[in-house]
Design a protein around this nucleic acid. Structure first.
Lengths: 137, 137
DNA sequence: TTATCAAATAAGAATTATTCTTATTTAACA
DNA sequence: TGTTAAATAAGAATAATTCTTATTTGATAA
């Protein structure tokens, strides 16, 4: 991912382009899992010792506000940030506490059909969060 | 719900029967929503001023351990406790932040079929958490 | 019933993720 | 290049939860 690409992503979303935002955006996209703010902070710390944890929090949150990334709450009440913004479910392993993405068209269709099938009256669904909890085999 | 009934519930689950556990179990079942530990604490406080918040936390957690109740994390990272232990989904209203139970046999069947239909290889699903996020109509 | 003892509780200190505050710096733009 | 609103660093503040320790209590057996 080039600097130019990231810069465009950020400015296109209406945010000022700053060094901190570039570094944090890049770190989040390089993370293979769903890092916490603190994990992002740790990832960038050595190369960018002057970026503060507060800035990481604030920056990630402004990325969420503008729709660049998603966030969700994990089982332990810690916010996790997700660079992939299209709808997907999560697999949570109770043993290792890993959280993995799970994307499946059939499941999406099934859920979509269920919702449009008038089953949820008095409620307008905007998004669906599915977490499969269990164990890796 | 009689005292005797609650007492049996608690002792059957392998826990000592105490006044505090009785009060907390009762309060949780009388709550119409999914209270936080603090809300349970507030509910019982006036009638039981000597029960401490720490005890509420510990007691709710031992109920979870023994399977008497369930807990889940809400959008704000606060634990919520749920007296109803059979599988169900939640409706989360983004406007009012209310969390309601949603139980639907068809949905349960659909999800069960999806899981047994080999779609999640390398992962053994033990439970599924579905949260519909949106707005009340 | 009473003594015993592991388990439960009260009280409050400690922890930890997150938010807030304020002074300083910086990016964007005229 | 100067101006200004927005962004940042640093660290204090907050709030949910857990931990610690001394005290109390329920269950069991003598």
């Amino acid at each position: 991912m080039t600097t130019e690409f990231i810069k465009n992503k950020i400015t296109d979303s209406g945010l000022k382009f700053t060094h901190q935002r570039w570094v944090i955006y890049d770190a989040l996209h390089q993370a293979d899992s769903h890092p916490t703010a603190d994990q992002v902070f740790e990832d960038i710390k050595s190369a960018n010792p002057s970026i503060s944890l507060g800035t990481v929090y604030k920056t990630l949150d402004s990325f969420v506000q503008t729709g660049l990334i998603q966030k969700f709450m994990d089982q332990n009440g810690v916010m996790r940030f997700d660079a992939i913004i299209d709808a997907h479910s999560h697999l949570y392993c109770k043993e290792t506490h890993e959280i993995k993405d799970f994307r499946n068209e059939e499941l999406e269709k099934i859920i979509h059909n269920f919702i449009s099938g008038h089953k949820l009256k008095d409620f307008e669904v905007e998004e669906v969060s599915i977490v499969f909890k269990g164990r890796k085999k």
